[in-house]
Design a protein around this nucleic acid. Structure first.
Length: 304
DNA sequence: AAAGGTTACAACCGCCTAAGG
DNA sequence: CCCTTAGGCGGTTGTAACCTT
């Protein structure tokens, strides 16, 4: 059976988004808020399908998205989470509020897999997780480590479910450096998105003929101006967005941007496990109290 | 400098799920 | 309940940018 693709309709544009489309989408969402994606193409005048709009927003235009290379800490976190959760990129991404699932997935499929292959060639053994700390393990160690993983996840889950007061929220932790783990969710301003778009527009200008580049530059100026000063507006579509960009209504985007890890999950043990790359394997794993728990029991209790 | 190969990532596709009628 | 469908997710593809020869 299956549904017909939503983008099969005649006249629906595909392919890379232009800066103009981005601006239209951002302006619309600024005004009406995200959600009701179905209505966006019709109401905003975009010749895109709803799905395309949603993806563009969540993966690229949404405020608070961090781009660029991943830090070692992020990499380790991803490795640990991938070992625990598998290819559930959305779940993994929820632990990295500034990264999108698409980003993480891409990063995994390019960088990490390459790394994995290289290690396979060097050592001839598959690492379980924590590439950077990887050392070949004998079978027993493997199993033991998996048991540890399961048990820690189980404890974390238990804490998450039964902890009464989330006092751990924003509790500072030495092993968590600059990452979001110790800070409240930053109040996302529209500037992040402005940066996204202006960067994109700048890139576009570089490779676009003069005329279109000029108009794009106009948009860039508008966006940048607004990021700094809300008074500049000339009535164009961007200015509609601009009025919101610096206003208190930006809370709209704060709401929409991914909640921080702390907001969504009470963390303590799992946090330790995820961020502490020395908790086993690579560092000195001997200080971990590996529970004497059979794999079957543990996994059964955890996943049922 | 040009051609061919590789990498990175934005975007699309199709399946799944949950909500609403 | 059943059906429909919007939204979400993971896998995959297309292509621009970069690198190597």
């Amino acid at each position: 059976m299956g549904r017909p693709p939503c983008c099969d309709k005649f006249g629906v544009k595909k392919g890379p988004w232009t800066p103009e489309e981005d601006i239209i989408l951002v302006s619309y969402i600024q005004e009406h808020g995200p959600g009701n994606w179905k209505a966006i193409p019709t109401n905003s005048g975009l010749s895109r399908c709803s799905k395309s709009c949603r993806l563009r927003w969540t993966n690229y235009l949404r405020p608070g998205i961090k781009r660029g290379s991943f830090t070692d800490q992020e990499e380790n976190l991803i490795i640990h989470l991938q070992a625990l959760l598998g290819n559930r990129w959305a779940a993994i991404a929820s632990y990295l509020p500034e990264r999108t699932d698409n980003d993480i997935k891409n990063y995994w499929n390019t960088h990490m897999k390459k790394k994995l292959r290289r290690m396979e060639n060097e050592d001839g053994i598959l690492p379980a997780s924590g590439f950077s700390n990887y050392k070949p393990m004998v079978k027993g160690q493997w199993e033991r480590r998996l048991q540890t993983d399961i048990n820690m996840a189980k404890q974390a889950l238990h804490e998450a479910l039964y902890m009464e007061k989330p006092s751990f929220l924003y509790e500072s932790k030495p092993s968590c450096s600059s990452h979001s783990c110790s800070t409240p969710p930053s109040s996302t301003t529209y500037a992040s998105s402005t940066e996204n778009i202006s960067r994109l527009l700048e890139n576009w200008i570089r490779k676009t003929p003069k005329n279109s580049a000029k108009s794009a530059q106009h948009h860039v100026n508008e966006l940048v101006n607004v990021g700094a000063d809300s008074t500049s507006s000339d009535g164009t579509i961007t200015s509609a967005a601009n009025n919101h960009m610096v206003s208190p209504e930006t809370s709209l985007f704060q709401v929409d941007s991914k909640p921080s890890l702390e907001e969504r999950f009470p963390l303590s043990l799992i946090e330790t496990w995820l961020f502490d790359e020395n908790c086993y394997g690579g560092g000195n794993g001997s200080n971990i109290n590996v529970p004497d728990l059979s794999l079957d029991d543990a996994s059964h209790e955890l996943f049922i």
